[in-house]
Design a binder for these strands. Structure first.
Length: 948
RNA sequence: AGGACCAUAGCUCAGUUGGUUAGAGCGCCACGUUGACAUCGUGGAGGUCGGCGGUUCAAAUCCGCCUGGUCCUACCA
């Protein structure tokens, strides 16, 4: 073995081997366990959030596989409609100077497929680097033929049940991308804006109660004035009661619009009057509905002003008889230009009462960066109310459990307040809506054009055209768990692996994906999509900032694995930026944080870091220092294994079941191993990967390496040790290490496999050529091997060793100088303990001799330490530093005093004695006795030294 | 504005049903090249558990208020 751990030499090799040996596929034996990967964007690349999530899924999968489950981790990618389309549009613009419209729909779609073929492997290659044990033979893509079938089927069936309908409604419109987008794709950003207070003149000579011939309304979007259909006042508002039913003469437009009473108007806000623009505001739409207003749309799809308004009733029917006149001067103006112009014109008319500066939050499209406009368009919707009921029930009755539990509240909160879901997108890349129109605009929903004709008796002479729009990506990903298993066919996979066992996902998409999956899956399979939802936090940078390309703080997991030079990192972060002006600041921040670039750490260390940070919190501040630490941990494990192999290979390890003699250390480490196995299994059961990783770390480093390996040396290097003793120690060394490797494997697959291949033959668990740790049994704790006596004895031994080391450090005695040590007082068994552990003591504490002193009064002048109530004495007649020792003792006594004081206070409290459980009181009393005894011994020692 | 979550060592985080001498890793200080490992070893320093109040014999832990932070919803007249 190499002297240090070199991950790059083993990782890729092992992954290729596992994949070639088809180790990832379900075995077909055991209880089914399945995880469906949350599909990443096919043309995207792996970010830290993916890497984190994939680590958790792989750890679960490998663990369940080792436990003998029939395990499927199914992988796949998402077509990510808008993101992918934009990417390809930008690419053809750059390379060919063309738009998608220049190419036409079919040619453009071909381009997207080409790009998918070219770049689609990127993210799956990265997944492989992370060690993901996914069944590649079952890889799925949301645009696959089979999956598209499922999508169509769902659409058609929902439509048949009238749970999908088409309507003219307000949606979040992205004027740059020309499509509706979901709430998820809207980012609310706060900023400085203006609030314009306008005077709206009353028609017909009407006056307000205080004699004015106008009312004041305020708006942040003056351009929507053109589409106003009324002014609302609160029904309780005495100031305006007389105006209800009267009219306004809408400035600039001249339209007569009514004043209505509606509780949407808040008496406290502004003047208490609010303008109503049902076609351009979600709240106003509701108000308009209550008062039967028309919808007056004044925007084009580019959010410029129309020449003539488009007027519809609330059912979306055009109203050809209405007056659509708009002022000609605004026609064609961009909404923000129109805003300026309208403000200026109102001002010129003396109707601008005030311009107020306010902070307000505006919706932005997260892809385009454009301000989202509520716009009236024809869209397809899912009526979610009936779907939501069983979905709420499934979580309420425990069929689906969230981990951590508190996310269930978030789920319920959202589910209780559902809006119908707009599923159509004005894109080209995606699942085209299975609906056809004839020339009259009648719509036929079917699985194909043929079926549409058949079902509706339409002859070949009737021209049909398919809906131009595609479905929201979340619509198809809502079908992910069952659509990928072959539904609507009743496949064996569907039978075996659905419902899936666990969904691993971030809390940010609970609403958009998790909730919709639950609704759709219950509806179409009658089953929940998954039994458990493990919700993790968001990976942030070391400062707690969200990682984003525009902030220039993203880390590529692969760079943490392989390392990257500062230059390459700078290029990655500042090259090809959307906002080049930020490059300088980003470069500086990057130089400050990574002045020498990033070292290679290997996949296992990265995975272990993620797991150790997988706590129940919502933010995961990625910690480079911990990454370093866990790389070191890998090295520790590596070197411990080197030691074991050096001492075991070619030696008698008792593989054949030969007689052995187990030392105290052997019995102790075996006992500790059982506890660790139980601990790790429990932590995994509870999804506490931080606890699991810590338990492993602790056992490997602080018990196996720090103590057991050291304790094995006196046996192995002792020429007088019996054959059985040496065999016993070697057997324990290799068996415990072999178990460690199996425990580590789900978390650190590569290093555990690499070492296991060498260790397992020695441990007698080798299954022959071609065996892999991947399919070995998960270690089960054996209670009968827990040896509390051994634990106590080792604790005693450690106590003595630490006491001597402590004296050395405090007294400035060279670490290598052999010492003569005396033990005295203590318990009757302590003398025996000394006898049976002399060789361990001698080696680990570097003693010349260790002697039991029957009569404490015979003790020479010494530096002392307490181990329980036993004294460890290092005679120091010649070299004692009186002051140092007195100072040390004083400190110790002070510490004891503090403890004693605390307990005395407790015991002095009558209420405590009367009300606390007896066991608690007893415990305090025995602690008090212990501390007092210790203090007494220290004081005796202090007196002795002081008398010098 | 409403709601949720969070606040523990210099940093990143654990801390079960209230009873622990409040822990870990990293960092820091001192010492150390014995044959697994300097990606290491040994020893050590460092916390009034955000603040105030309450419940209790007992609070890091339960409750209330305050401060600070994050997120969601809403407002965006």
């Amino acid at each position: 073995m190499e002297k240090t751990y070199q991950p790059e030499q083993i990782e890729t090799r092992w992954y290729e081997r596992w994949e070639a040996d088809n180790r990832f596929a379900p075995t077909g034996r055991g209880k089914p366990f399945s995880i469906m990967i949350p599909p990443p964007n096919v043309t995207g690349s792996l970010h830290m959030g993916h890497a984190f999530q994939d680590t958790i899924m792989d750890t679960l999968t490998r663990w369940k596989r080792m436990q003998g489950n029939n395990t499927l981790w199914q992988v796949g990618t998402d077509h990510a409609g808008i993101a992918t389309q934009m990417l390809v549009e930008r690419k053809i613009a750059a390379e060919e100077g063309k738009t998608r419209h220049d190419l036409g729909r079919d040619a453009f779609i071909d381009k997207v497929w080409e790009w998918k073929e070219e770049s689609g492997g990127h993210i799956t290659r990265q997944l492989r680097r992370m060690g993901a044990s996914v069944d590649w033979s079952r890889e799925r893509f949301t645009m696959d033929e089979g999956f598209y079938k499922a999508v169509q089927e769902v659409f058609v069936r929902l439509h048949e049940e009238k749970l999908i309908y088409r309507g003219k409604r307000l949606v979040n419109w992205d004027p740059t991308l020309h499509t509706a987008i979901s709430d998820l794709e809207v980012e609310n950003r706060e900023q400085q804006g203006s609030f314009w207070h306008f005077r709206y003149p009353l028609a017909d000579g009407v006056k307000t109660a205080d004699g004015k011939d106008y009312v004041v309304v305020a708006t942040t979007r003056p351009e929507t004035l053109l589409g106003d259909t009324g002014v609302a006042v609160n029904p309780e508002d005495g100031r305006y009661a007389s105006l209800v039913g009267k009219f306004i003469e809408l400035p600039l437009v001249g339209r007569r619009i009514p004043i209505v009473a509606d509780e949407h108007a808040d008496m406290e806000k502004g003047s208490g009057c609010v303008k109503i623009t049902p076609a351009h505001d979600f709240n106003d739409y509701e108000v308009g509905k209550r008062h039967n207003h028309l919808l007056i749309n004044v925007f084009t799809k580019d959010a410029t002003i129309l020449e003539r308004a488009e007027i519809f009733d609330l059912k979306g029917q055009p109203q050809p008889d209405e007056d659509t006149t708009l002022p000609t001067k605004y026609a064609g103006l961009d909404r923000f230009e129109a805003r300026k112009q309208i403000v200026a014109d109102m001002d010129a008319l003396g109707l601008l009462e005030q311009e107020e500066s306010v902070n307000n939050t505006l919706p932005y499209g997260d892809r385009s960066g454009d301000v989202i406009e509520p716009l009236l368009t024809d869209q397809w919707f899912v009526a979610v109310e009936t779907l939501a009921k069983p979905a709420i029930e499934a979580v309420a009755n425990g069929s689906i459990q969230f981990v951590p539990r508190n996310y269930e509240n978030m789920y319920f909160a959202w589910m209780r307040d559902l809006q119908d879901w707009c599923i159509s997108r004005q894109l080209w890349w995606g699942h085209r809506i299975p609906a056809w129109y004839d020339v009259e605009g009648n719509v036929y929903v079917a699985r194909s054009e043929e079926e549409a004709r058949e079902n509706h008796g339409l002859g070949a002479d009737v021209a049909l055209t398919q809906d131009e729009d595609v479905l929201d990506t979340w619509f198809s990903s809502g079908l992910w768990t069952f659509g990928t298993l072959g539904w609507p066919e009743q496949t064996p996979e569907l039978e075996t692996f659905h419902p899936s066992s666990v969904l691993v996902t971030g809390f940010d998409i609970i609403f958009f994906w998790v909730a919709r999956m639950i609704m759709m899956t219950l509806k179409f399979t009658g089953e929940v999509p998954f039994k458990t939802v493990y919700v993790h936090g968001l990976v942030r940078d070391g400062q707690g900032q969200k990682m984003s390309k525009s902030k220039g703080n993203v880390l590529d997991p692969i760079d943490l694995i392989d390392g990257i030079s500062l230059e390459a990192l700078l290029e990655k972060r500042t090259g090809n930026m959307m906002q080049p002006q930020k490059a300088k600041a980003i470069a500086k921040a990057t130089r400050d944080e990574f002045k020498d670039g990033i070292e290679a750490h290997g996949t296992d260390a990265l995975r272990f870091t993620f797991l150790s940070q997988a706590t129940t919190g919502r933010d995961i501040k990625f910690d480079m220092n911990r990454l370093d630490g866990y790389r070191n941990f890998c090295n520790k494990l590596w070197n411990a294994s080197r030691y074991v192999l050096m001492n075991a290979e070619g030696e008698d390890c008792g593989t054949g079941g030969e007689e052995v003699e187990l030392s105290l250390a052997d019995r102790w480490i075996i006992s500790q191993l059982q506890k660790t196995e139980a601990q790790i299994t429990r932590a995994m059961d509870e999804y506490r990967f931080d606890h699991a990783s810590q338990a492993l770390y602790e056992f490997v480093w602080n018990e196996y390496c720090d103590w057991y390996l050291e304790l094995s040396k006196p046996v192995l290097w002792d020429v007088h040790a019996t054959l059985e003793a040496k065999r016993g120690t070697r057997r324990t060394l290799v068996r415990v290490l072999e178990a460690i490797l199996r425990l580590a494997h789900p978390m650190m697959p590569y290093i555990s496999e690499e070492i296991w291949q060498r260790v397992s033959p020695l441990a007698g668990t080798y299954m022959g050529e071609g065996a892999s740790i991947m399919h070995q049994a998960w270690p089960e704790a054996d209670e009968s091997k827990i040896d509390e006596q051994a634990t106590r004895d080792i604790e005693w031994l450690k106590g003595v060793i630490i006491a001597v080391r402590n004296i050395r450090a405090e007294m400035n005695i060279a670490p290598g100088k052999p010492l003569d040590v005396l033990l005295t007082k203590g318990q009757p068994e302590d003398a025996e303990r000394l006898e049976s552990n002399r060789r361990f003591l001698a080696k680990l504490a570097k003693l010349e001799s260790a002697t039991w002193l029957a009569n404490p009064d015979d003790a020479p002048l010494s530096a002392t330490q307490l181990v329980g109530d036993m004294e460890v004495l290092v005679p120091m007649a010649d070299l004692i530093d009186k002051d140092a020792e007195l100072a040390r003792l004083a400190k110790e006594i002070e510490k004891q005093d503090k403890l004693i004081g605390g307990i005395e206070k407790k015991l002095g409290n009558d209420g405590f004695i009367a009300k606390a459980p007896v066991a608690v009181v007893e415990k305090e009393r025995s602690k008090l006795a212990e501390f007092q005894a210790a203090k007494q011994l220290l004081e005796e020692q202090q007196a002795k030294i002081a008398a010098l």
